[in-house]
Amino acid sequence: MKQLREPMALLGAALLSLLVLVAVLAPVIAPYDPRDAVGPSLQAPTFAHLLGTNDLGQDIFSQILWGTRPSLLVGVGAATVAVGVGIAVGVGAGLRGGLADTVAMRVVDVFLALPVLPLLVLIAALVGAGRATLVLVIGLVRWPEVARLTRGQTLSLRCRGYVEASREFGGGLGYVVRRHLLPALGPLITSSFVNVGAIAVLMEAGLAFLGLGDTTVISWGLMLNRALLFPGLYYSALWTWWVLPAGFAISLAVLGFTFLGVGLEPRFNPGWRRTKL
């Protein structure tokens, strides 16, 4: 992965690794159970409670650590769904061409025109927003972009000498896709994955913030939702330890994904970075 030498990508990768580490180790490193009332309500940060406590006396620092899990799960899950479907449709359409291609791309157009967020709000309110639903829905509204990009790449790769040669020598469709297309699409896939991840993290937090998420799982969005429901949040110092950390955590996760995505970008578009204006 030589593009990882890109400082921005490096920073992004570092941020994400940190978050993954926190998510995995949450039960070990969190000082308290995030659901237990372990202190007095609404306590300002102390050494016992690094980020203070919320209205139920739960430790906010522990909640932030645990909140990493649903965010990353939804981000990675949705990105997997989107990239999986997107690649299948994009590569298929690009290789097949003809009617299949036309139909697939019109479907993509329809999906691209959907107002994503209102749709999500609607689905979340009607079916509920469990993590699985969220992963599926975000993945399914985000695949068209991936499909469009991979189709374009596939079309150009299809005409490359080595791909044509491989087919001439009797390489089956599956073989060509596996052996030549997917490796060549690798960077594109990585970058799409990361981009969808960023959006999914934001949407998960957003829906939880609106109170439409899964209320049984502690997440950053849910923490914000609870905090904002608290009367008197704005005219006391509460918001400094109740609102800011969760907002900061969300920003960090999204930045991690975005930095990685932007850092990986120059490979397809070298002009963006190196040319001096």
């Binding site: 107002p115 994503v116 967020l117 209102p118 709000v121 957003g206 913030f209 609106l210 904002l228």
Partner: peptide, 22 residues
């Protein structure tokens, strides 16, 4: 108009289309 307004209007209690929809 179809996305972020929902959040922004909710946070700022701004009575717009996004809030109405929500």
């Amino acid at each position: 108009v179809s996305g972020v307004v929902i959040f922004v209007e909710t946070v700022f209690a701004y009575p717009g289309l996004g809030r109405l929809l929500f």
